[in-house]
Computed example of a mutant assay.
Amino acid sequence: MIDFPVSTIVHRRLPKEAFYKHLQLSTALKSRFVSYVGEISVANSLTKKNLNLEKETDTKEILLLSIILKKRAFDGKILEVIARQNPHKLVFLLSYEQEVRLAVYHKKLYYSAWMSEDDIELTLSVETLDAIWEDLVRQIALHSPSVEQRTESLEQQLKDQDEIDRLNKLIKKTEAAAWKEAQPKKRFAIYTRLQEYKQKLEEITHGET
């Protein structure tokens, strides 16, 4: 569940047309916005005041935007535009039928997996809005236990997670290529490359890079 204090609840629905009129959207993205988005609302607003925080930070407000989708295959560029053109820090809760997923933009767009509403988790456990924002990004963007458990900076953790994801994709693609290759020399070259990817993954997974 999304465990935010009652004091942060807003539940204010935003008219779609009024919302996207304030965004600089290409004609194509505007069309996709209308096609993909059913409803959009501000679910929660996190501020120093309503969280009873003491320290002033650069982050002034974090909004949880709830977006009900018409289609599950959503164009993430829409979220990027919304996040980049909004003065607040934004966390997105995307809903399609009985499934939900979280998204956050921090230099790039990160998603959680699709899951049931009962399985979604997002908590607050730190003392400043800056720290809360970084923790929310971690909860959504990081999904490798070895990265989550490190005491590195957020930027380093995201860099490691991105590299792990990239290597996993390369390993899967290279394994498929090895199965299809009939020529021994080419297959050997592919297997050599595959072992290099696996070695790099092993190193970064155990924090040895």
Rank of each mutant, 00 (worst) to 15 (best):
I2Q: 00
D3Y: 00
V6D: 01
S7L: 02
V10P: 09
H11K: 10
R12H: 10
L23H: 04
K30R: 13
S31Q: 14
F33E: 05
F33T: 08
V37W: 04
V37S: 01
V37Q: 02
S41G: 06
S45I: 02
T47V: 06
N50A: 05
E54Y: 09
K55T: 15
K55S: 15
K55A: 15
T59S: 15
E61T: 11
I62V: 12
L64D: 08
S66D: 13
I68A: 10
R72L: 03
A73W: 03
A73M: 10
D75Y: 05
D75F: 04
L79D: 01
A83T: 11
R84G: 02
N86R: 08
P87F: 01
P87L: 06
K89E: 11
L90H: 01
V91I: 07
L93C: 01
E97A: 05
E97P: 01
Q98W: 05
E99T: 02
V100Y: 02
V104S: 06
Y105I: 03
H106Q: 06
K107D: 13
Y111N: 11
Y111G: 10
S112R: 05
A113R: 15
A113M: 14
W114A: 09
W114V: 13
S116Q: 09
D119C: 01
D119L: 07
I120E: 00
L124R: 00
E127P: 00
E127V: 00
T128C: 06
T128S: 13
I132Y: 03
R138E: 14
Q139I: 11
H143R: 12
S146K: 09
Q149G: 15
Q149T: 15
S153C: 03
L154H: 04
Q156E: 14
Q156G: 04
Q157D: 08
L158A: 06
L158Q: 08
Q161H: 00
D162R: 06
R166F: 09
L167H: 06
N168L: 12
K169D: 13
K173C: 00
A176T: 03
P184C: 12
K185Q: 09
R187P: 01
R187M: 10
F188C: 05
A189W: 06
Y191W: 13
R193F: 09
R193K: 14
L194W: 12
Q195W: 15
Q195N: 15
Q199I: 12
E202Q: 13
E202M: 12
H206S: 12
